[in-house]
Structure formats: C-alpha cells, structure tokens
C-alpha cells in the first residue's frame, strides 16, 4: 500500500490580533491507500484545524501536505476547490444538505461543479443513493428524511465523485444510536470496498470502529488505542 496522504511538520497558527494561537504544532501523519483511520481528540485539541487542512479547506502555516501525490500546501483557493471537488468526499456532522433540493440534486451537487453533463450526473447520483440504500428516497427533500437517512444522503454525496479520500467530521455527532450504527456500518462497507476513510470524532466508541486510531492533544499527534488511558 502506498501513502495516500502525507503530512510532514504541519503547523497552523491563528493570529487573533492580540495573541497567536498555535493550533497544530508540527503534525506528521501518513495514511495508506485503503486505510480507515480515526482521529480522536477532545475539543480544543486542534482536531478541527487538522480536519480543515486534511480537507484542503485551509492551508498549513508551515510544513507540507501531499494528497494523492499532489502537494497542496501552497495552492490558491481555486486550485484547492478543484482538489476538494475531485479528490475528497466530505461527510459533516450537520449533514449540510441544501433544504430546497431533493436528495438526488444534493448528491448531484459536486458533479455540477465538476462539469459533468446532466444525464450522466443523474445516473451517477442515483447509483450513489442506491449504494447507501436510499434508492426509494431520491425525490425526497432533506426535511422529509430522518437524521440517519440525511447522513446517508451526504455519504452518497461524498461518494458520487469517486474521491480518493472520504473525510468524515463527527459524522455521528447528531445521530441516535441506531442511526449511528447504520452509518458506521456504511463506513465499514465502504472500507471493505477499498475506500480510504479518515474519520474525526471525540467519541471512543466511534473511534474503535476504525482500523487505526490517531490521538491529537494540544496540536500534536500520537498513535494509540481508541480507549483513553
């Protein structure tokens, strides 16, 4: 297995005017192709900052980050948008579905920005929804779906571009235990199918599902067991 993503000495400093906050203080991380990694840490640990940089939503202040063989540390906003579109599928805690659009059109959205023609878009979005078990819900709006179903729609949206990395930020944070189980089951299936998944969470039970757990504390990483010592 080759490294799909590799971070070397990544630092992120926020300048809030009066004081400088070091959210990441030299992070080294490599994730192999096909791995299922959980990044665990309490709030304030730099977990969100790490997720933003992993997701190319932000760039590091220092250090390098290579994703899928491409150095993204110094890209412009437009270039980063393209990387996010082609290589990353996001699953958010808040689902982030557009309420006015049907499930199908929500799933289509990344393909719209990829410039995929309409007919192909439709077909691929339907396939992605079938993949997450929502073939019969394509024309429902988010408001007409349960929390678990909404999160499955957003997983379908993450899958539809066939990205190198699926990045899930607290994907079960807003779900009851049954839905949590469903969604985690879905991640297992995707992992078994060879997808690379990075899951960010503060819940040990969720982190345990992953094959590998990385802990983040005060902006530094340590490999370790899922259960806090």
């Amino acid at each position: 297995m080759s490294a799909l993503l590799r971070m070397v000495g990544v630092r992120k400093t926020y300048d809030t005017g009066a004081i400088q906050v070091e959210a990441l203080r030299g992070v080294d991380l490599a994730v192999q192709q096909g791995d299922f990694v959980a990044i665990m840490g309490p709030s304030g640990s730099g977990k969100s900052t790490l997720m933003h940089i992993l997701g190319c939503l932000d760039v590091p202040s220092a250090g390098t980050y290579e994703l899928d063989g491409v150095d993204v540390s110094h890209m412009t906003e437009a270039e980063l948008a393209d990387v996010r579109n082609r290589r990353i599928g996001f699953v958010f805690q808040q689902f982030n579905l557009l309420p006015s659009m049907t499930a199908l059109r929500n799933v289509e959205l990344p393909l719209v920005y990829a410039g995929v023609p309409r007919a192909e878009r439709r077909e691929r979005a339907q396939e992605a929804l079938r993949r997450v078990g929502l073939a019969d819900r394509v024309d429902h709006r988010p408001g007409e779906l349960s929390g678990g179903q909404q999160q499955r729609v957003s997983v379908a949206r993450a899958l539809v571009t066939d990205p190198a990395l699926i990045l899930a930020d607290e994907p079960t944070g807003n779900l009851d235990s049954a839905s949590t189980h469903d969604v985690l089951e879905l991640f297992h299936e995707l992992h078994d199918a060879g997808r690379t998944i990075v899951l960010i969470t503060h819940e040990a039970e969720v982190a345990q599902e992953a094959r590998r757990v990385v802990r983040i504390t005060d902006g530094l990483l340590s490999e370790g067991a899922a259960v806090p010592s």
Partner: peptide, 16 residues
C-alpha cells in the same frame, strides 16, 4: 453563509 461554505467545500471556486 452555510450554503456558500458547503458549495465551496464541494468544489465551487470563488469565481463560480
């Protein structure tokens, strides 16, 4: 703001 953020996360460039 949220919609804009989501669209950007999904690949919308500032120009779009």
């Amino acid at each position: 703001v949220r919609e804009i953020g989501l669209r950007k996360a999904l690949g919308a460039t500032p120009a779009l």
